[in-house]
Write a protein that binds this DNA or RNA. Structure first.
Lengths: 222, 222
DNA sequence: TAAGTCTTTAAGCAAATCTTAAGAAAGAAA
DNA sequence: TTTCTTTCTTAAGATTTGCTTAAAGACTTA
């Protein structure tokens, strides 16, 4: 899941980035409206968090232009404290929700999850055969026994399971789990797939994570 | 534990804030009904203390609207009048309890604790292996022997134990135990975890407080 | 105001994780 | 089969994250 934060205050965007990365989201930051819109229009993001007051281009303007191209990507506004009129206006412009600063992280997260839930079912626990992954708890079990995964291993497994029974292209995986600007010619995915298969105890008879040669990988379940 | 006081008289709200902070609660104040309702609806308070007579919006109205969204968060009324009719009306509206001004602070505190006690997840004593934490008298024991903790150490331990066997992400810990706007890039948590582990006598064989790398910490008990 | 305690910052060190790279293995095509 | 391409596996180096300590800063209390 990719999130773009368009926010000029480094304190806020930094805090958000860290918090969301702890939740295994892939987060990018744009520091002004122009840059933000450009990044957003690249179309890789699953949700935008946009500050209302921005140098260069206002959040409303961003929303308006972005909406033309991407009618369904959720936009969540971050507004200063006592501007509920403006917030209503934001919703009319095309935002999906707004949250007032200073905000509580828990609440923000809940609102993000609501947006994802509306899109597709963004469940808290995901399964793949004997593998069970709890997103909230950062915990993975195989046949009820805990398996310790690192951040990246966890994010990769989550991505694959969320796209269960669909082929995941290498480029897509890199974009979502690593970074958009990550070197395409890398072997990281292979390395992490390898360690996932090891840790999860997957064998060839038992290959819940299949290799699709020339394309990528697929989490497979009958 | 976060408390929101909605009260227009600064003398009273200030007195309450100070007293409650001494009891290690995190306290915010709203000075009128409208602001109070907005803050309350942000949803991260564990209890509301609401003045009956408020400019802008009455306590009853706040209760009515708040209850729609949060059916279980306790609301405690502060009433000036001695008429039990109004008190009964308040309770019918959705308040959990009321207390008459001028009130005795001890009594208020007792009533707040009653509310927490009624909630299933607000026990008076919390345990984690050999560690026992008594919220009422701010006391911690390990194998029956008292250990002296400072305010912050206590608050951190309480947070971890209340979320026993769940991963506590750094950003959430900062938000709950420190402040929403605390510098996200800080090492305070590490320092306090360190002193907790020392004071509680935790070792690697005995690690009731686990580190979850890249995410946070977890109070673990089989 | 001064002494004492608690909280926060900062910095060096240690450990875990991530990335790269290169040879081995497996699969596809000729 | 042979050759070429893609993926697997391993290990070493780079990087990040957390631990620990010390000291500065903030706050209390007398």
């Amino acid at each position: 899941m990719r999130i773009l934060i368009i926010e000029d205050e480094p304190g806020i965007s930094g805090f958000l980035k860290q918090g969301l990365e702890e939740e295994a989201y892939a987060v990018d930051i744009a520091e002004n409206g122009k840059e933000g819109l450009e990044m957003a229009l690249e179309g890789y993001y699953d949700i935008l968090l946009v500050d209302w007051m921005l140098p260069g281009m206002s959040g409303v303007e961003i929303t308006r232009r972005f909406r033309k191209e991407f009618p369904s990507t959720p936009i969540l506004f971050l507004t200063a404290k006592d501007t509920s009129d403006e917030a209503i206006f934001a919703l009319q412009t095309g935002a999906n929700d707004y949250i007032r600063k200073p905000f509580n992280f828990e609440e923000l997260l809940a609102r993000i999850r609501v947006q994802f839930r509306n899109q597709s079912d963004h469940q808290l626990s995901l399964t793949l055969g004997p593998i069970c992954l709890y997103t909230e708890n950062h915990r993975v079990e195989v046949n009820g026994k805990e398996v310790i995964l690192t951040q990246k291993e966890f994010a990769l497994l989550e991505y694959l399971i969320r796209h269960k029974n669909k082929v995941c292209r290498r480029s897509r995986i890199i974009e979502s789990v690593w970074d958009i600007h990550f070197d395409y010619d890398t072997g990281v995915i292979d390395v992490f797939i390898n360690s996932l298969r090891k840790k999860l105890g997957l064998t060839k008879d038992n290959n819940y994570i299949q290799t699709i040669r020339g394309v990528g990988y697929m989490a497979r379940e009958e």
